[in-house]
């Protein structure tokens, strides 16, 4: 069937089988391979994207269910060469080593900061509790999110 999904602000129309999962639609149909595909069982969280602003595990969403809706992926974070604060935070605080979990982590943490500009350690850890990182022990991810929050606070003060 024909679906139109807006991904990172651009509407994409494709003919798909109803059984196609959103993660494969993004990776194979749209060639947006920043969204990773891991456990396939909604446990690991590497496939997290935002669907209408909410982080979801795209291995457990059908592409047809995203018809007419908005998806934001890791490719939609940076504006040109300018990194999103969450990306800058992960870079500054070494929130990754191998990078496999990173796109999903950043999409969840981006949504967290959008709702809560100054999350506590616990709030960050709860937010990412459905996602697995085998490199950092999560410590640097928590630091990265704090760093991103600080970058955003500093930017706001400049604006005010």
């Amino acid at each position: 069937m024909q679906i139109t999904v807006t991904v990172n602000g651009t509407a994409h129309t494709r003919e798909v089988e109803p059984r196609l999962l959103l993660v494969h639609f993004l990776r194979d149909e749209l060639r947006l391979t920043g969204t990773h595909w891991g456990c396939d069982t909604s446990n690991c969280g590497v496939c997290v994207v935002q669907l209408d602003g909410q982080p979801v595990k795209s291995c457990t969403v059908l592409a047809v269910m995203a018809d007419g809706r908005e998806v934001r992926t890791v490719e939609g974070l940076a504006r040109g060469a300018e990194l999103d604060p969450i990306q800058q935070g992960f870079s500054d605080k070494h929130g990754l080593q191998c990078g496999f979990c990173t796109p999903g982590m950043m999409m969840t943490c981006r949504a967290l900061l959008d709702r809560n500009p100054d999350p506590s350690d616990t709030e960050i850890r709860v937010a990412i509790s459905g996602q697995i990182c085998r490199c950092t022990g999560y410590e640097n991810i928590v630091r990265s999110v704090h760093a991103a929050a600080e970058i955003e606070r500093a930017a706001q003060e400049v604006h005010q």
Binding site: G45, P55, V56, T60, V61, A127, G130
Partner: peptide, 9 residues
């Protein structure tokens, strides 16, 4: 119940 991302859905 599950985790926050699953609970969103």
């Amino acid at each position: 119940i599950a985790d926050p991302v699953v609970r969103n859905r």
